[in-house]
């Protein structure tokens, strides 16, 4: 399940939806990304924008890729857009499988690729200014490690 929304999400509700009545699920891993302070400055919030249409198709491809690499019972990806205040949730990736390794690794894989391929852009609001967040080289490195596996 893939959703782009402005509203907050409820992790425990999403867990119930993903697991449902499926008896074969033995492991669920969830990652939640949040709006946090900068290293040297308190952040007021973020504005997140995306490319409607392309976002959904890129996320669907990432989930499909993960489904091919690991044996998964289910995947949920929810990403919020619009203005998000300090401490608010931004993104949820939840993976379900029979065994824990598949769930851990696929969740990590989807997040690494989401950060480098899904068309979202963040603008950071601090007391001083509003500026676009720059892409991090570390994120490119994180995604490149999956190519060798």
């Amino acid at each position: 399940m893939i959703r782009i929304q402005q509203e907050p999400f409820d992790v425990s509700h999403e867990y119930d939806v993903l697991v449902g009545e499926t008896g074969s699920i033995g492991a669920v891993v969830s990652f939640v990304g949040r709006v946090r302070d900068l290293a040297d400055e308190q952040v007021c919030g973020l504005t997140l924008e995306h490319y409607p249409g392309m976002t959904e198709s890129v996320l669907a491809e990432l989930v499909d890729d993960a489904m091919i690499r690991w044996s998964l019972e289910g995947v949920s990806v929810i990403h919020r857009t619009g203005y998000l205040g300090r401490g608010e949730d931004i993104v949820l990736v939840m993976t379900a499988s029979a065994h824990r390794h598949a769930a851990f690794e696929s969740c990590d894989y989807i997040m690494d690729h989401l950060k480098t391929r899904a068309p979202f852009w963040k603008k950071e609001h601090t007391q001083e200014e509003v500026c676009w967040v720059a892409a991090k080289e570390l994120d490119d490195k994180a995604v490149s490690r999956w190519r060798d596996k």
Binding site: Y51, M54, P119, W132
Partner: peptide, 29 residues
């Protein structure tokens, strides 16, 4: 750059009706 919502490069040949989007590296998540 993305053409018809797929990432591509600057040497990509265009056709009538194409949707071409320019943007900086993505920063979601």
């Amino acid at each position: 750059v993305a053409v018809n919502q797929k990432m591509t490069s600057e040497d990509h040949l265009l056709s009538p009706g194409d949707e071409v989007a320019f943007f900086p590296p993505v920063t979601g998540g």
